[in-house]
Structures are given as C-alpha cells and as structure tokens.
Nucleic acid binder design. Structure first.
Lengths: 326, 326
DNA sequence: AGCGTAGACGTAACCGCTTACAGCAACCGC
DNA sequence: GCGGTTGCTGTAAGCGGTTACGTCTACGCT
C-alpha cells in the first residue's frame, strides 16, 4: 500500500482526491509511491462510502439496431467527461427482463439509467424513480410524467418527409409504419397525416401498412402494398424499414426512384451507401444521447432538471432515393 | 434493514446466499421481511469483500459497427447466466483511450475484459494480464500469446469467398481489403491469394485496393478499381465495405451482379436486404461472443483455459450479388 | 448421567476507502 | 508571552456486506 511508502491512509486519500491541504513535500512523496507501486485506488471501496459508483446504465431492447448503437457515442462522451462508465443492458423487448435489470441495477447502485424502447408499464418504472433511482428516457418514449424525455420531434420529421414527397409531385404516398402500439409509430403516422391533410390529398387507409422498424417488417409491408394499388412514393418509418422497402421494390422489378420514391427516417450511417443512397430524415442521435446523459448526470447529482420534455429538430437529407413524379 | 424484522445480519446474509444452514422458520421470517421492505443487498459492499463485481467489460473501437454490435447479444446471454452485467467501453481506435479504460476497469475491479480491435501494443496489454486482470480477445486479434483468442477462420473464409467467385467463371477478381496493418486484413488477403493460386489465376497487384472496413473505405477503393481496368468480380473484406463497393458500382452506371459480382464478409443482418441482397461469408458472431465470454468467465473464476486459440468455421451464404460470368 | 456432535445463530473482524474530529506545529498580532 | 489562526496530518468511525469462530441448544449414544 502506498501508505507504507508515505504517510497515513487519510493523507493519501486527500492527496489523491485533491481534498484538503497537503504539504508539497508529502504530495511528492505520495506521487512517487503511487508511481512506483502502480497504485490505483479501489473504486468499489470508494463507492461504498461515497454512494456514487460513477456508473450509469443504458437499457434498451437490442443494440444490433444501428440507431440505438448510434446513441452510444454521445452517451460515452458525456459519461467519460464525468468520469463515468456505462453498463449496457439489452432486454430483447422482454418486460420481465427489463424489470429484472432495473432491480439489479438498483442493487448495483448505479448512478442512473438511460432507457429507450422499454415496454414495461410506466407505473413500474415510476416505482423505481420513487425509490430514488434516477431514470431518463430517450428516443422512444414511455407514457410517464415521472421521467424526463429527450427525443426528436417525430411528428414534425414525418411531416417534413411527406412534404418532400408531395413537393416532388407525388400524390399516391404510402407509409410503412413502425411497430403497432408504440407512441413513436403513432407520432410518425400523425406527421404523415398532417402533411397529407395540409396538401388536401386523400389519405387512403390501404396506403398505410404496418411494419416493425426492421428490414423484415419493411419488406413485408412493402410487398403487401405492391400487391394492392402500388403508390408512387413511400415514407418508411425508419431507415431499416426503408431498406426492406427498397428490397421489395427491386424484387418486384421496379426501380427506385424512377418508379417509386422512398424516404426513410433516422439517417443511419449506412443510409448514404444504400443503392440508391437513401433520402431520409436526419435525427440528431449524438445530441439526443448527450442531452439525455447530461440530464441523467444532473439528476444523479441531485440537481433539479427544469423541463421534462426535450424535443430536438429533425432535418431532411435528400439523396438518391426520391425523384419527381414522372 | 431486514435484520430488524428478523435476526442478525450474518444470518440474513447466509439465508440470502444459501450458505450455511438456516432453520425453516427463520428463513420464512427473513423472506417476509425482505418482501416487505423490498430489500436488495448492496452489491458494492458485497463486492468489496468477495473481490468479485459480477461485471465484465467489452472494449472495442465503435459499437456503431454492426458486427461489433452483433457480438453483444452473445456476451449478454452468457454474462446474464452468470449473473454478470457488461460495461461497454468504446475507444474510437485511440490507444491512449484504450489504456485509460483498461486502467479504469482495473480500478473498478471488473472481473475481466473482452477486447476487440485494440491498437494498443500487445505488451501493454500483457502488463494488465500480468497484474491479474483477465482478458480475452475476440474477433480481431492482437499479437500476443498472453491472451486467449476466439475468432472465425478468416483465411478460410476469404478463400471460400474467392472460390465462389472462381466457380462462377470469374478470373478478374479484385479484393477490397480491410484497414492496412491489421492482421485480420492480412489474413483475408491471404485467403484470397490462396484461392487464386490454387486456381492458377494470376493475382494482379492492381486488383487489391486498400479499404478500411467501412462504407467509405469500400466506396473509395471501388472507385479506384473502376478507374483502372475494372474487374468482373470483387471480394470485399467485410459487408460494410461491400455496401460502399456496390454504391460505387451503381454510381458508375454498372449493375450488380450483371456487370460485376460482389461478395462480402460478416453476414450482417442487413446483408439480406441490400439491393441486391448480398452474397457473403457468414461469421458465427453469436457463438464467437458466447465462447469468448465463457472463456473470460472461466479465467475470472480461476479455472485454467486449455487452448489459447479458438477458430470457428465461416460459411458461404449465396444471395443475389453474385452471378456467373456473362 | 455424561459427553460428543450437529444444527442454528450471534459476535466481531475485515474488505479498502472517505471524512469528521482532533492534535500539533508554526505563525500572527498585540 | 499568549490566545487565535492557519496549515497539515493522524485517529478512528463508519460504508454494508461476508465469514471465521464461538456459543448454545437439543439430541444421540454409551
């Protein structure tokens, strides 16, 4: 122990943490000892007394979804700046596992948890915050007033996407929706409806197909759409769906964008490299993540967070998958 | 504290951990108290004495790379079964950050760390294992004998990919390599060479372009290839590169696979939904992750791990991006 | 009756830190 | 010369668990 090479454990603690005053000479001696032994304070002992583990958790269904993955760097950046690390917990959309994890995380004394896409009843989540576990929700919201939320303005994004298609002359615009029952899906349908209504374009029920935010979902939904009266453009609820949509279109012998235009939502890194490159709605994932993390850190530090809802701006990115109606 | 509702803390501890004998009646009383208070033992206090944090870490450059993300579920599955959680640490390929994290993880007393794609000198890593930090490497290897490694047989995979192209009649087969200087890139080049040599096909130096395992890298490399004497087929070092490759091909007015066939490596989930769907080499990511995690857990538990190198089998998945030479 | 033993629990030390609190110089002003 | 600061450091009490050890009761055996 560094104390052998120096003085008392209390002084070492103070020196290393920069709390209290230490004589220059003692400081140097301690530094030397630390250097020599390669001493690193045991953080778990530290956590036991300080009540802070310098650890936050990210709880979401599946990190293989590129959008979720895109959130990580923003979290990491903020967390690292605060000296914290991040536990990643994936739930596969299983509410039991969500609860199990939340309970485990509390036992582990994490400083807080970031949640995305949970399916657990909001009141169960509220129970945890009531017990003192800081939670903030990002991206996909839960129906709760007890948890701050930061996400993109989904309704606006969907509206912008649809308006883009309208401005290209399209009138037969389909929507491949997200997973049913989620508020985020409903918001995007809402934006789509808003845009159509504003342009006085009839909104055909047969033109909104239900997907699941996955390639498979988009693929299936688009095949169904093509089997009916094919649209000239489609707004997919996210980029992954859009991939499936384009796959189905190509398979049917049609071309994107010559025969059918498609616009996605998310602006994943790979959207720039699909064939053709995907026109989509950009979500500021990095900032969403940063903002949410900062909020969580504030909460954990006992600071009050002013507003509950943080909406960020979506942005249209035009690439090669949309074209004017022939 | 549950002890109020029951007996002594020692007994509670024994009851909850199932160590030692406890009378049925006491057990019931404790259960009741636990239930009533919603008591959950503080794991950090526990860790302080048991020396086990039930936490492992995953250290890699960037979780936004879908292949890395695909590893997570296999890790999660094994870790959860062992009651452990996983810290995710992303380094952006920065060696200083790698070292900083490793050092932090040691201070945090994690039970072990899984590393992938590190660029830190192997001897620095060896220092950590020497100090008692269990480390196992998966996917991308480091040049060290002190760390167990589990990965797919890269050379064989590359060979299979190239043979597939050869069997379709192609002779002008290019390779868009991975990031230069990495052993994994070299292995895949090696497999490509092996296949060409076995078929007595000339290997033109101008037909291997350097990429970087990213869409951008593949795109750039393919543009360079097209600017020279275009191949009739290309083997991309991974699926992400293949995306970029297909992008560049489409942009040049050529078609996949009619004009140029392309095969990737990884078999990302999205490979089935590119346009056209990508023929690729399947990597058993889930099993690689599982195996590596199990190894790490074994190491952490003080069990000896028999062999250092674990090679898993790649597999060709034929989809729509390859066709017989016209 | 006496002793050994097994079962069920309590006592207390300890894990490696942080942090009151107190002690002790040296230094200040008057 | 003396009380009051100020600067620096040590002592010790935890933080919330685990666990070696000891104790006590009840029981079995001779």
């Amino acid at each position: 122990m560094a104390r052998l090479a120096g003085v008392s454990t209390a002084t070492v603690s103070r020196a290393l943490n920069g709390t209290g005053q230490i004589a220059p000479a003692t400081g140097a001696a301690i530094d030397a000892a630390v250097q020599q032994l390669g001493y690193r304070p045991n953080t778990v002992a530290r956590s036991l007394v300080t009540k802070s583990t310098q650890t936050i958790a990210l709880l979401l269904p599946d990190i293989a979804n590129p959008f979720y993955a895109a959130l990580v760097s923003g979290i990491q950046e903020r967390a690292l700046a605060a000296g914290s690390t991040m536990l990643l917990c994936t739930t596969e959309g299983d509410p039991e596992r969500e609860e199990q994890y939340l309970s485990l995380l509390r036992a582990k004394q994490v400083d807080g948890v970031l949640v995305d896409g949970l399916v657990l009843p909001p009141e169960r989540i509220a129970d945890f915050v009531r017990e003192g576990l800081p939670i903030v929700c990002l991206d996909r919201d839960i129906d709760s007033t007890s948890v701050p939320l930061v996400q993109v303005d989904n309704r606006l994004g969907a509206q912008i996407a649809t308006e883009h298609l309208l401005s290209l002359g399209h009138r037969l615009i389909a929507h491949v929706a997200g997973a049913p029952g989620l508020r985020i899906s409903a918001e995007r349908i809402g934006g789509y409806d808003d845009a159509l209504a504003a342009a006085a374009v009839e909104r055909r029920r047969t033109h909104v197909a239900v997907g699941s935010f996955t390639e498979e979902g988009g693929y299936g939904a688009m095949r169904a759409l093509l089997a009916g009266s094919p649209p000239t453009a489609v707004f997919a609820a996210n980029d992954l769906s859009a991939l499936g949509v384009m796959h189905a279109i190509a398979e049917s012998g049609r071309r994107v964008p010559e025969d059918i235009s498609v616009v996605g939502f998310d602006d994943l890194r790979l959207a720039a490299h699909t064939t053709p490159p995907l026109t989509t709605i950009h979500q500021p994932a990095f900032e969403i993540a940063q903002r949410a993390t900062q909020l969580l850190l504030d909460l954990a530090a006992g600071r009050e967070v002013p507003q509950r809802l943080h909406l960020l701006e979506p942005e249209l990115v035009v690439r090669g998958s949309t074209a004017a109606l022939a």
